[in-house]
């Protein structure tokens, strides 16, 4: 058999590529597993926040950190509550110490005491992942480790994330961070492990005032969907074209 250098190199390259693809890289899923992995297309999870009802108690942040095992004493958090105090000069004073985890018991903002008669309005705004319809974080992930499920929730595959931080940079809402233990991108999942089993998200369950609600936006009879369709609601930073799916009742123009 004649084997020229060219054909030897050609065949050698082919064999090398074939050998580098082990069988274990192919995985067969049962239909149930496949469905569970991509979510139910008949559902679209959405969130409704009534800022009039939020008192800044921080129970949601506490519950989230415990439920999702985010180190309790570190500043990073999947959800947080911001305090806004607007004074007579039109200035908005904003803070969120420890993500509002321990509630707002100190009237000082950034170390400054604001006189009660100076305050014209004050309110709290809970924040979490907006589970965008057009998520910038998913677009920029170089390895596809973060993805959108069929029911609209953006998740991170902790076994696949390389920890480059591009998704953290791409999110206009600052909801992503590196998990201090797993060293991969981390974010709010609407408690996907709970909602897909018929339970409510931990923060929704922990809220004593019903300021947080989760529902199926594809179901017009869902209370959340009905509220969004019938009341005046707004979303955060729609100018980025991400189509956020967390809706706010009573959103103020000062909210960042």
């Amino acid at each position: 058999m004649k084997c020229s250098r060219r054909s030897f190199l050609k065949k050698g390259l082919g064999s090398a590529i074939a050998a580098s693809l082990p069988l274990s890289s192919f995985k067969f899923l049962s239909p149930a597993e496949a469905r569970a992995a991509v979510g139910d297309p008949a559902v679209r999870w959405g969130f409704l926040i009534n800022t009039y009802k939020c008192t800044g108690c921080g129970f949601c942040v506490k519950a989230c950190k415990k439920e999702n095992k985010v180190p309790y004493d570190l500043p990073v958090t999947r959800t947080w509550v911001e305090r806004y105090v607007v004074t007579r000069d039109g200035e908005a004073h904003i803070d969120s110490p420890a993500g509002g985890r321990d509630g707002y018991t100190d009237p000082k903002i950034e170390g400054k005491e604001i006189a009660a008669e100076e305050i014209t309005k004050a309110f709290f705004v809970p924040k979490l992942c907006n589970q965008c319809q057009n998520p910038a974080c998913v677009q920029v992930c170089p390895v596809g480790a973060t993805f959108q499920t069929e029911d609209g929730v953006v998740l991170v595959d902790r076994t696949w994330c390389i920890g480059c931080g591009y998704c953290i940079m791409a999110c206009p809402y600052g909801v992503r961070f590196f998990h201090p233990v797993y060293k991969v991108a981390e974010k709010c999942t609407f408690c996907y492990h709970r909602i897909t089993k018929g339970m409510k998200s931990a923060c929704v369950q922990a809220c004593p005032f019903g300021a947080r609600q989760i529902g199926d936006l594809k179901d017009p009879d869902d209370p959340v969907t009905r509220a969004i369709l019938t009341q005046r609601v707004a979303v955060l930073k729609d100018e980025y074209g991400t189509k956020p799916q967390v809706f706010y009742i009573g959103l103020d123009e000062n909210v960042r």
Partner: peptide, 21 residues
């Protein structure tokens, strides 16, 4: 800079083409 440097090779093996990286 990667938090998971050993997985860096995934960029070559499983590229997600909507990402500039």
């Amino acid at each position: 800079h990667l938090q998971q440097p050993l997985r860096g090779i995934e960029v070559l093996f499983t590229p997600h083409f909507t990402s500039a990286i």
